[in-house]
Design a protein around this nucleic acid. Structure first.
Length: 561
RNA sequence: UGGCCUAUGGUGUAAUUGGUAACACAGCUGGUUUUGGUCCAGUCGUUCAAGGUUCGAGUCCUUGUAGGCCAACCA
């Protein structure tokens, strides 16, 4: 209740208008149609949010349909990965479909077209056909085989199906118009011969239907009401409609194709070819490398399905060119993680602190809040002792009053612990600080309620007790590309714009409660960012991925100087 | 040179279908805070251009300009 009236995107406007014109709401039906030849990425997430979101909004079924008409590229491995990713994002498909399930129906319809003299077998090479195709400004010319008899076409097509001919010897083409200003209407190929095993139909077929012939008819078979695709298919709509005209009968839903602009995310690439190249060239470690914009990569990075969905909802859908700043995605990731991630302390760039007035063997367990944003999150105990680690950049021998951290003679609060004062520091021969000697105020313990504990000190630092800390590998990620739009430069290859420092692997020191952290669990390392346990973790060594840093206004201040 | 599509703040998306340009992010100012996080308040735009229709145009018309897409037996 109280949910603000959400404005409609242009697709929803089209649907609303169809409804007003009498289209029955119960007949609304959508589909998400990936080709199983690669992994799903952030762009697909947008498409899923659109289609499945429409399903939710109108209480309409949404099919997951694999567009598997090219056995040369498609594999079962991708089908499994895609299903996992769709489900992980939280979407529920009505039924799982495959375009290959419709091969018999498609074949029957093709025969019907031949009988109506609307399709013919062409026996030229692809080079000859390309030549006859014309150009966008010049009309094409008819194939010498365009006027074969229906009987001859029927026989040849049957032969193609039976595997009597080699690949490339014949194709079935729709007989439309070689002079059409739309190149796609110049007698498009409907079937080609391919002697390859298909991941589902195996060697049952020697001919495979092309995208245009398959997609619209599949929509029709499934009675999809609104078939949504990206802008580059806009020119295909005329052909989509032509094919539908050949098979549609009254009283059946006639699918409507509408196109939207694909979402472009800054500092990344998203084409399957380029993502594949990043993997094969070893620039990343796999499709699920946390730097990849794939769903699998984002999952491993620690992004949540909610964050990705909120992001997609926020950016919306339209028809114009766009380049969405990754910082918007990161905002949604932080927003969600801020609510759900337990806080812990970890020091990633340690320098040793010795509390000179703290008893040598003493240790205490201090109470720490798990999440100030979540009252139900409870508390935990963290160990405190004489020797601690703090971050190296949380200490300066001298600093101005804008530096709210530790400096000689200055006081600072150790989170959940005591107020300490820096007295001196020890350096090695190179001048690097190796120890900071401090005194602590024994009466200032957090939560003790003493007058001293209530003192206001500017600055609170996170820390870990050295003897209790556990060492872990921490992987710090940065954007994969240094350029916001790496693959749109005419004069520069996107590979030249790869960020050489997109991964830095370091050893961090964690509070001991993290010992039992499980793969996939997400935490906020206080004052640093959100981190999650990577699948590379073993029983004796934890590996963490930095999902995203905290907003850092201090770093911004430093940048200005 | 032909056809199709698009144009609103730095970014993305809206605008009750012709009626005072809104929301989010980013930025900037402050405030709160035992995370320089979170949270709170404030601030930044006359809709690509030029004409036209109208009492009134981001919405309609005309002409430009800019950008994207189209010639795989890929999807």
């Amino acid at each position: 209740m109280g949910e603000a009236e959400k404005s409609l995107n242009f697709i929803e406007h089209i649907i609303e208008e169809d409804l007003r014109n009498g289209f029955p709401k119960e007949a609304l039906r959508f589909r998400f149609p990936p080709e199983p030849n690669g992994y799903l990425h952030i762009g697909h997430a947008s498409s899923m949010c659109l289609n499945f979101g429409l399903g939710l909004r109108y209480d309409a079924p949404v099919n997951l349909r694999f567009d598997d008409t090219n056995p040369a590229k498609e594999e079962q491995e991708y089908v499994d990965a895609i299903k996992r990713d769709v489900a992980w994002l939280g979407f529920r498909w009505n039924t799982e479909r495959y375009a290959s399930d419709y091969f018999p129906q498609l074949y029957a319809w093709a025969v019907k077209l031949i009988k109506e003299d609307k399709a013919y077998v062409d026996s030229q090479s692809s080079e000859e056909m390309a030549k006859q195709k014309g150009t966008p400004t010049e009309p094409g010319t008819n194939s010498a085989f365009r006027n074969r008899t229906i009987t001859e076409n029927l026989e040849l097509f049957e032969g193609m199906k039976m595997g009597e001919y080699g690949e490339g010897t014949h194709v079935l083409r729709a007989k439309i118009d070689m002079a059409s200003p739309n190149m796609l209407m110049r007698d498009p190929i409907m079937y080609r011969i391919l002697h390859r095993a298909h991941h589902r139909t195996n060697t049952d077929w020697c001919i495979y239907p092309m995208y245009d012939w398959t997609h619209g008819e599949s929509d029709y078979i499934e009675q999809v009401s609104h078939s949504l695709c990206t802008l580059e298919f806009a020119m295909h709509r005329e052909l989509y409609d032509w094919f539908l005209d050949q098979v549609c009968v009254p009283d059946q839903v006639r699918p409507k194709q509408r196109e939207f602009a694909r979402r472009n995310l800054s500092h990344t690439v998203v084409s399957k070819r380029k993502l594949m190249q990043l993997v094969t060239l070893g620039i990343v470690k796999g499709w699920d490398d946390p730097r990849m914009p794939t769903i699998a990569g984002m999952r491993r990075r620690g992004y949540t399905p909610e964050a990705i969905r909120n992001f997609a909802d926020t950016i919306g859908i339209a028809k114009r060119e766009n380049l969405i700043d990754v910082s918007l995605l990161e905002f949604h990731v932080r927003e969600h993680l801020n609510r759900i991630a337990p806080r812990v302390m970890a020091v990633l760039d340690p320098v040793k602190v010795v509390l000179t007035n703290y008893p040598d063997q003493k240790e205490e367990w201090l109470e720490a809040e798990n999440n100030p944003e979540d009252e139900g999150a409870g508390t935990r105990q963290v160990p405190f002792s004489r020797e601690l680690y703090i971050e190296r950049d949380d200490f300066m021998e001298e600093a101005n009053r804008k530096f709210f951290r530790l400096k000689l003679g200055g006081e600072v609060r150790l989170k959940n612990g005591y107020i300490i004062k820096a007295e001196s520091c020890v350096k090695d021969k190179e001048g690097t600080i190796i120890e900071i000697h401090c005194t602590y105020d024994p009466k200032s313990r957090s939560g003790s309620g003493t007058e001293e504990s209530l003192r206001k000190v500017k600055g609170t630092l996170h820390w870990v007790s050295i003897k209790h800390a556990i060492a872990a590998e921490v992987r710090l990620y940065d954007r994969l590309f240094t350029d916001e739009s790496p693959d749109t430069h005419k004069d520069r290859d996107y590979l030249e714009l790869v960020n050489p420092n997109s991964l830095e692997s370091i050893t961090g020191y964690l509070e001991p409660s993290l010992q039992s952290a499980k793969v996939g669990e997400r935490f906020q390392f206080q004052r640093l960012g959100y981190f999650c346990v990577d699948q590379d973790s073993t029983s004796n060594k934890l590996v963490f991925n930095r999902t995203v840093g905290l907003r850092d206004t201090w770093a911004k201040l430093l940048d200005k100087n």
